[in-house]
Design a protein around this nucleic acid. Sequence first.
DNA 1: AAAAAAACGCTTGCATACAATTGAAATATC
DNA 2: GATATTTCAATTGTATGCAAGCGTTTTTTT
Lengths: 135, 135
Amino acid sequence: MKHPSECIFFNLAKAGKKASRYLKNEVSRLGLTSVQTLVILFLFYQDQITSAELGKRTELDSATMAGVLDRIENMGLVARRPNHDDHRAISVCLTDEGRTIAEKLWDISEKANITFLKKFSKEEIAFLKGLLNRF
Amino acid sequence: MKHPSECIFFNLAKAGKKASRYLKNEVSRLGLTSVQTLVILFLFYQDQITSAELGKRTELDSATMAGVLDRIENMGLVARRPNHDDHRAISVCLTDEGRTIAEKLWDISEKANITFLKKFSKEEIAFLKGLLNRF
DNA sequence: AAAAAAACGCTTGCATACAATTGAAATATC
DNA sequence: GATATTTCAATTGTATGCAAGCGTTTTTTT
């Protein structure tokens, strides 16, 4: 390593920040952040799951998850419901309004994926995603 | 996009977080975070630069930079000196202690790069870094 | 059944991230 | 040379990110 910019930790952190900024810019007109967007998209794919399960899928720990859920719950997009099978757990659900927003977010995200990756070929994208998923 | 986990923003954010966590774990015995480590490594490569220049190189904005510098300055690792050419600017310097720590961090980082990338071939690493730097 | 261990959601404290703003200083424009 | 704009470092406010710990409930062990 001749220069810190060759450090993989720097490369990945930098790319992660750029991605997050890009998505946030696309969804900010809905008053949402990139993390809130991803949480809602995962819930749109499947909701009525516990906070722990949602955290595993979205890669957010319980402390971060609590804060994110607080905020999107206050916006009326999700609801925490008691879990009758396990009284420790909650069931996170999308509200009707949350589902409406989720559809818009899905649309925006699909388009943003394409524009954000405009410079890359299909093969490069597939290869990149494959590599990233091995970390 | 069939599933939110295929979203490039999710892939990059996830990899960035894993990288940051991994480096932090390696340097935490020195009482430092991954971001503080990267800032010190950039200063080790070249110091006596302005906060703005350091921010450009490390990809940190001025608000984040101010906080990071506050903390590593309080640890005695860097010093903010007045810039005689430009009275608005400061000159960020590594202290002697900072330089000693930086040498250790460089060593730790080189080893961590290797172990973090153990699963990947040289070609894959080169290709990945090339792709990441195009964002 | 009783005790120990684990899992759940949450809070606290600290460290990034970043938009927006400030005051001071440098530069550009006229 | 006076004015407007830009640049610099820093602060504020809000949102992650994460380690450590809490009380409650469930599961495991004995």
